[in-house]
Each structure stands twice: as C-alpha cells, then as structure tokens.
Design a protein around this nucleic acid. Structure first.
Lengths: 178, 178
DNA sequence: CATCCATGTGTACACTCGTACGCATGGTCT
DNA sequence: AGACCATGCGTACGAGTGTACACATGGATG
C-alpha cells in the first residue's frame, strides 16, 4: 500500500490542520477535513492525535511558535536606535495587511481561548512574549499597555474593515511611552 | 395543545439563544439547544428563524443593543466633572469582573465577526459606539485609541486570568488623553 | 358563518462528526 | 531469523446536526 512509513506524518497533519483553521476557522476543524487536506486516511489523524482537542492544541501551538519566532526576529523592535512607537505602528500595520490571514488565525486563537481552557496557556504565552519583547525598551507596565493598544488596534482594523492609519497609531503609541 | 398563540415566541427564542451562546459559546448554538432552553418545540425555532445564521445574527444583535444601552446610560462617562481616565478604568474593571459573562459574550461576537460577514456590522457598531461615546469628552483620534486600549486590556485580563489593576489602567488611559 | 393563512408542532431524512477497533505492515531488536 | 510493536489503514457505529415538510389550529377577514 502506498505511503507507509512516513516519519513526517504527524508534522504534516499539524500543518494541514493549520491550513484548515486558517481557511475555515476553528469551527471548520475536523478530523476528516484535516485528513483530506494532508492527504492521509482518516484513521491516521486519530492515531497521531487521540482527540480533536489535542490536534487543535498542537496546531495552535505550532502556529503560535511561528509567530513568536517572527516577533523575536524583528531586530528593529529591539534596536534602541529605532523609534519604538514607529516600529509598533509598523508591526500592527503589517499584521492587518501583509500578514492578515495569519493575524486572523491569531485572534481566532485568542477568542477560542476564552472558551477552551486547553488553549488558554497558548494565548497567554503570546501575550506574555509580546509584552516581554516590548519591555526590553521600556518599563513593564508601559509595555503591557502598549501591547494592549496594539491588540485593540488590530482588532478594530480587522472588525471594521477600515483602513489602518499608521501615522495616527504612531502618535498614540508615542503618548503611552514615558 | 398547550401554549398556542404566543406573540412573544420569537422574542423568547432570541433570549434563549443569548443564554445558550453565553453558556456554551457560539459553537454550542443549535436549533435544538435553543428550543430546549426556550421550552418550545424544535419546529418553532426553524419557523421563526429560517436558518441558524439568522438566529445567531438576531441574538448577537439584541445582546449588542443591550450593551449599547448600558454604555449610553453611563452618565459618568459623559459627565465632564468626572475624570475620563478613572471612568474608563472603572468601566474595564467592571467588564472583566461583575459583567464578565456578558463581556465574554461580547468577545464571542468579535470572534464570530472575523469569519461571518453577516455578523461583522454588529461588531463594528459596538466599536463605533464605544468610540463615539468617548469622543464626547475628547477628540476622535484619541477616542479611538482609548477604545482600542480598553479592548486590549479587557482581552488581556480575560486571557491571562491575571487580576485587573485598575489604578495602573487609569495611568495608561491618562497618558493617552492629551 | 365560512375561509384563509400566519403561526405552531412533530417527525423524518440526509448528512457530518468523533471515536473505537480490528487488521496490515514492516522497521527494529534480540 | 524470528518476534515484537509502533505505525498505518479502512470501516463502522452512534450521536448530533440543519433543514424540509405535512399537518394542526384558531384569530382575522370578508
């Protein structure tokens, strides 16, 4: 039979799950949808992930790790030569335009965390990392507020569909920075 | 047969739907769950709301209207004698403690809006009203940022489970107000 | 009073889903 | 070489779902 012994199997299943959630939302995640997307039989998804929740957690965790790596790799955010407010405004701008799909998935994760306790730690991780990265340039309390403002601005942009005004955002970030 | 001619029927169905979403989340919304909660037969829910989406939209719309009325009724927010930053900090505090259930439902609405275009206008309405109410006390751009910060702080509190620090929030709101 | 039709009710159908489970297979270890 | 067992595969079952639809009822209308 085709494709036996596939050491990357469970990884490919996770990748497929991320694509499914990205396209149809968490509500659209099912063993069958993932199996089809990964081109593996149904039994394979249930073998590698005992329950659908396990799969969801694995997928969201991996997606979140990718986001975190990206965030960490943003040298400009850490570089004290740059203007923090400008960099944050740029970050949000890119999140709601270039990376819009991934950002939507990120917020899907957030809001799913409200109901599913298994997902909450993952969401909390993201909030914490975001705060921590910013805190390298300012104090912790301010960093938390900056992260919150960034979150709120993202959400507003995603929900209202209004165009994001980067310059105005920069001004607001600047006001928070002491 | 019992309870024929019930002019409040569709209203009671909506109320039941709100309770169901509040308790189990949007994922838990089904014709049958609502029918049971409203104590009406299954056919009744499908009669009054052709599709499940119709019911969801009606429920979220009504819940949102209630929130909006409450927000409008907050005299302190409009009263120029009060300190705006203090009032906003109090508002968020109450949202994540006393009104936590309703707030979770509000964010559930946000989540739904990300994927369902029918729900997006309802979420946008809420964002707009929030901004408008605040804009009575300051300029529009600042109001938008204040609303975004409030949203972000709410979300952080709900996700991390950390206790909300009202005083710290007040300081951050105050920094945004020019 | 006769009729109509908005409203209310119960049931049935087709579908998707999560999960369980028996069996196949072939690296790996003794 | 032979046995073992992690991994892979297909199928089946029961539960839950949205929706359609045939029928009941009784206030409103003429």
């Amino acid at each position: 039979m085709a494709r036996r012994y596939d050491p990357e199997r469970s990884q490919r299943i996770i990748d497929a799950a991320i694509r499914v959630v990205g396209e149809r939302g968490i509500a659209g995640l099912s063993h069958r949808a993932v199996a089809a997307e990964a081109d593996v039989p149904l039994g394979s998804t249930t073998y590698h992930f005992a329950s659908l929740d396990d799969l969801l957690v694995a997928a969201l965790h991996q997606a979140n790790e990718a986001c975190k790596r990206d965030l960490d790799a943003r040298k400009e955010l850490a570089d004290p030569e740059t203007d923090l407010a400008t960099e944050l405004a740029r970050l949000v701008d890119e999140m709601v335009t270039r990376d819009r799909v991934r950002t939507e998935l990120e917020y899907e994760l957030y809001l799913a965390a409200l109901r599913r306790s298994a997902v909450r730690p993952i969401a909390a991780e993201w909030v914490d990392l975001m705060t921590e990265v910013i805190a390298r340039r300012t104090d912790r309390d301010t960093a938390r507020a900056l992260a919150a403002l960034a979150d709120g601005l993202c959400l507003q942009a995603l929900l209202t569909g209004r165009e994001f005004d980067r310059e105005q955002a920069r001004v607001m970030f600047a006001r928070l920075i002491r």
